[in-house]
Amino acid sequence: MSDDSVPAGALRITTCDTEETLAAAGVLFSHYRRHYGQPPDTSERTIGWLTEMAQSNMLMIFTASVESPAGTPPIGLATSHAVPASLVMGRFWQLRDLFVLPGSRRQGAAVALVSAVRDAAQTAGATRLSLVTEPDNEAALSLYRGLGFRPVGGLASLSLDLA
């Protein structure tokens, strides 16, 4: 849309599990990776990776599109996955990636995507939905807090590079 506006209620959320939907998600995923400083790569590599993750049930992939008679490419992407929750002998879900094209932000796509992930997690019996974001990403923190997410105190985030 030329004016970057999304009419209220005009978003469609799609769970990506077909070749067509994963190809559309791949375009957004490439934008997302470039946004975080990763070099562009071939769409075949991106779509192959997303397809592998979706088919192995390692990631659930969702896109948000603006409803239109002609159909439009997606404007937003979210990925999530289930994680074993040992202490409660259940599982929780983690929201891994959330990205909305810059010209389509603050129009409801991010809220719709997080809501779709939350609903899928609840349907799957998850005990909670978690996420990690940079401490200086005020826009994301504001969005997540507005959706009910709360900081987790008393934990340290550690990583071991295996590459």
Results as ranks from 00 to 15, higher is better:
Asp161Tyr: 10
Leu22Arg: 03
Ser43His: 06
Pro73Phe: 10
Ala10Gln: 15
Met89Lys: 12
Gln107Leu: 04
Val117Leu: 06
Ser157Lys: 03
Leu160Trp: 09
Thr42Met: 08
Ser159Ile: 05
Leu98Cys: 05
Gly153Gln: 13
Leu129Trp: 00
Val117Gln: 01
Glu20Ser: 15
Ala116Met: 13
Ala8Tyr: 15
Ala109Phe: 04
Trp49Asn: 13
Thr14Leu: 07
Ala85Asp: 12
Gly90Trp: 04
Ala8Thr: 13
Arg150Lys: 10
Ser68Tyr: 04
Cys16Gln: 06
Thr18Gln: 10
Leu160Arg: 12
Met60Ala: 11
Pro69Phe: 11
Pro7Cys: 07
Glu67Met: 14
Trp93Lys: 05
Gly103Asn: 15
Ile13Pro: 05
Ala110Thr: 14
Thr51Trp: 07
Ala85Trp: 08
Tyr144Leu: 09
Asn57Met: 11
Leu162Ile: 03
Trp93Val: 01
Thr14Val: 12
Val152Glu: 07
Arg12Tyr: 12
Asp41Thr: 12
Gly26Tyr: 11
Leu11Ala: 10
Gly26His: 03
Pro135His: 11
Thr15Met: 12
Thr18Ser: 06
Asp41Gln: 15
Ala25Phe: 02
Gln38Val: 09
Asp3Glu: 10
Ser142Leu: 11
Leu50Trp: 02
Ala70Asn: 06
Thr15His: 15
Leu28Phe: 03
Glu52Cys: 02
Pro151Val: 04
Gly37Asp: 09
Asp4Pro: 07
Thr18Tyr: 12
Asn57Ser: 13
Leu22Ser: 05
Glu138Trp: 14
Asp136Asn: 13
Arg106Leu: 05
Asn137His: 13
Ile75Lys: 03
Asp97Trp: 08
Phe62Pro: 04
Ser5Cys: 03
Gly154His: 01
Thr42Glu: 14
Ser115Thr: 01
Tyr144Glu: 03
Ala64Gly: 08
Thr79Gln: 00
Cys16Asp: 09
Gly125Ile: 05
Ala120Phe: 01
Gly26Ile: 15
Met58Asn: 08
Gly146Asn: 08
Glu134Lys: 15
Ser43Val: 07
Ala24Pro: 01
Glu134Leu: 15
Asp119Phe: 03
Glu134Arg: 14
